[in-house]
Amino acid sequence: MLEGKFEEASLLKKIVEAMKDCVSSCNFNCTENGISVQAVDNSRVLLISLLIEKDTFEEYRCDRNITLGVGLGSLSKIIGNGANSDYLTISADDDADKLNIIFEDKVKDKISEYNLKLLDIDADLLDVGPMDTDATITLPSADFAKICKDMKVLSESLQIIVTKDSALFQSVGDIGTGNIVIRPKTDIDHPEESVTISLDKPIDLSFGSKYLSDIIKATSLSQKVTIKLTDQSPGVFEYKLPSGYLRFYLAPKFDE
C-alpha cells in the first residue's frame, strides 16, 4: 500500500507540468524512502530524474516497493481539478491498476476523489551514475529561463562558455547573434538572487534550444537552478524540491 499526502497540491502540479511535455508517460517507483522517476524523451536526448523524498510529504507510507505507470497528460488533467492550496493525497494498493487521488479543501468541508488508470510501461533505464563536474553554475531559475527564451529567438542552439569569473550564453543564428554574460554575485539580503560559479576546467558546450525550453518549465519549482557542466558530457540542470530534486540530463551538441 502506498499513501502520500502533500501539504499543497501545487507541488505535484508543478512537478507534472515540468515533466509532461518531455515525456508522455513514466513509471513512478515508490519505496519506503519516497518516490522516484527516471524517464527519457522520445528523441533520447533529454533525461528526467525526479526524487520526491519521504520528508516532502505531510504523511507518507509505502509498505512494499511498487511501480506505478502514469500517463502524465492524464495525471495533469486530474490534478488540475484541485486547488493549489488543497491537501493532495495519492494512494494505491499493491498490484493496483489505478491511482487514487484525493483533494481536501482546507477551508470548505469538501473532498474530491479521482481514480487514474495506470499503464504498463516497459521503459529501459539508463545507468546514470555519479558524474565528474568541470563547472557548476548556480543562478536564479527565472534568470536562466529568460536567458534560454531570449537566446532561442536567434538560434536552435545555445552555447555555454564558462571561465573562471563568468558564464557566457551565446547564440549565433541567421538573423544575428546574442551574448549574455553573468558573473558571480553574493546578495546577502536576497540570497536567492546570488550567482555562484565554480570551475575546475573551462567549459564550452552547445545545447539544443528546444530541449532547454522544456527544462525551464521547471522554473516554478525552485528559485534557483544549478547547472553542472563537463566537457563533452551531458549537462545536468537541477531544481531542488523541499526534499528531493528534479534533474534534467541533456546531451550536448557536437560539431562535425
Binding site: 539508463l126 552547445s206 546531451a251 551538441k253
Partner: peptide, 14 residues
C-alpha cells in the same frame, strides 16, 4: 554544422 548526441552514448556505452 552541429549534430545532437543522444544520451545512450554517455550512460550506456554497451
Amino acid at each position: 554544422p552541429q549534430y545532437q548526441y543522444i544520451l545512450k552514448l554517455f550512460f550506456d556505452p554497451e
